[in-house]
Design a binder for these strands. Sequence first.
DNA 1: CATCGATGTTTAA
DNA 2: TAAACCTCGATGC
Length: 287
Amino acid sequence: MPEGHTLHRLAAQINTVFVGRPWRVSSPQGRFTAGAQRLDGQTPEHAEAWGKHLFVHLGPEIWQVHLGLYGAFSFRGDADFAAETTIGAPRAAAVTFEPHYDAEGWLIPEPPQGAVRARISARHGWADLRGPATCAVLQLAEYQKVIGRLGPDPLRQPRTDTTPRKDFLHNLSRRRISIAAALMDQAVIAGVGNIYRAESLFLEQLDPHTPSNQLDPERAAALWDRLSEQLRDGVAEGRIRTVRTGGSRRHWVYKHQGTGCPRCGTLIAAAELQGRRLYWCPGCQRD
DNA sequence: CATCGATGTTTAA
DNA sequence: TAAACCTCGATGC
């Protein structure tokens, strides 16, 4: 589920199992061959997420990955390689395997299956990246250009003396698009996707069509706090679950169109907005 | 076996 | 606004 929480989880995972030791990098699919050669044998120093981007720093160069809609990392390894199976879009569970080691004591990875854009290997395990929207090696200036286009990420520490929440309010105040469109704009707030958009607006009882520059500042601040909480929960749990009252229902309105709103009973609506499905309750999401 | 759809973004028209 | 990118699970016949 590649919204912002996924990328922060991924960065943490890479910091745990890859950072600080030389790794091996290849592109079995062949679409990242030159980049993989640059990264191969280097020592990853630090992985970080900013919104939906993953950056791994190696000296002056930075590996940038954006999972897009389909991308995912699959981690495999022996008992010393503590890693979850996949981080990203849904993938079938991997079959267990018998570990074998080469002469230097490195675990021998299984042959790559299907379209593996990048394979990164450590002593005790490896990870396969499939289907990313972006997989590139950046120089510092290019990296700065990418992050310069991103708004505040609720899962990151502030970059300036103003708080990220103030940046968010400021970004909203100078746009005339709907709040629903604004939440999907990564320059307004980084890391929010279609699920968190629907679920945060529902819990804050905000009409998705309200122009973002007409949103009451206190309610906009509450929306930021709500998104921060939801993203933090997503990182902790590894999946988006905004219904926290127990039971099997995971989302309040996302993909629940045509059923009764749990709060007011009105039928939940769905509509296409800028190419994405928007879900909301017309009964109780009003301003 | 074919088709559809998805948590996203960029580019072209 | 639509198409393209790119992968694979779900759905349907």
